[in-house]
């Protein structure tokens, strides 16, 4: 039995057993299924207790911009006994105030993953015991990995418990001359160094409209 057969057999087994699952096409490596938010906890419970998926290695947030449902959480479960991965995608029903049930009670590793997805995408993981920001500071008003958020950032106050006299700076949009700095392997060291793709504009000279 080849690896591809294992992938498809696991996916078909899951699809046959859990009627609420839908297959997720386009996965090149691991079997992938979509699960509705209301069935996520019961599905994860079955994965852990009955199917031997004893490890949750990652939760990634996703923002599909104009599509609906807009926000999703992508889970990677591992069956360590067979070294098998399973990708589970759970879309948030609400596009404006996205909410997905928390898996912390089932998998303790979900704690920080969910905090990160909450921080970066603003997804509310219902039932999380301590849903604080994990990367940005607590008073930060935005969710930086949402599609509408500019990479350069937006102006806001820096975190400070008591305004320090000397540090009266603010978060300001970063000068993104030429877009994000990209390192491209080149013939010479100079070509390979990180630089913007388009150097024709900078913080004083506006970006030309196309």
């Amino acid at each position: 039995m080849s690896a591809t057969d294992t992938v498809s057999s696991l996916q078909s087994t899951l699809l046959a057993r859990f009627s609420y699952l839908t297959p997720r096409s386009g996965s090149a490596d691991h079997p992938a299924v979509n699960v509705p938010a209301e069935n996520l906890v019961s599905f994860a419970t079955a994965l852990r207790d009955e199917l031997g998926f004893d490890m949750l290695t990652d939760i990634a947030g996703a923002d599909w911009d104009q599509e609906s449902p807009r926000f999703a959480a992508v889970y990677h479960f591992v069956r360590t006994a067979k070294c098998e991965y399973l990708r589970v995608v759970c879309a948030a029903p609400d596009d404006v105030a996205p909410s997905i049930p928390s898996l912390v009670a089932l998998y303790p590793s979900a704690n920080w993953f969910e905090r990160e997805a909450h921080d970066m995408f603003g997804i509310d993981f219902a039932g999380h015991p301590d849903l604080r920001r994990i990367l940005m500071w607590d008073s930060y008003p935005w969710h930086p990995l949402r599609k509408e958020f500019p990479l350069a950032g937006k102006e806001t106050d820096i975190p400070s418990d008591d305004q320090i006299e000397g540090a009266r700076t603010k978060v300001r949009p970063a000068p993104l001359a030429g877009g994000p700095f990209v390192a491209t392997p080149g013939k010479t060291m100079h070509d390979g160094e990180p630089h913007g793709k388009d150097q024709s504009w900078n913080e004083t000279q506006p970006k030309p409209t196309r």
Binding site: L151, G153, A174
Partner: peptide, 18 residues
């Protein structure tokens, strides 16, 4: 100057505070 980290999270040069 913030170096290659031109992003929402990075202070663009420590001379803004020191």
């Amino acid at each position: 100057s913030g170096g290659m980290f031109r992003s929402y999270a990075t202070l663009q040069g420590v001379d803004r505070i020191l």
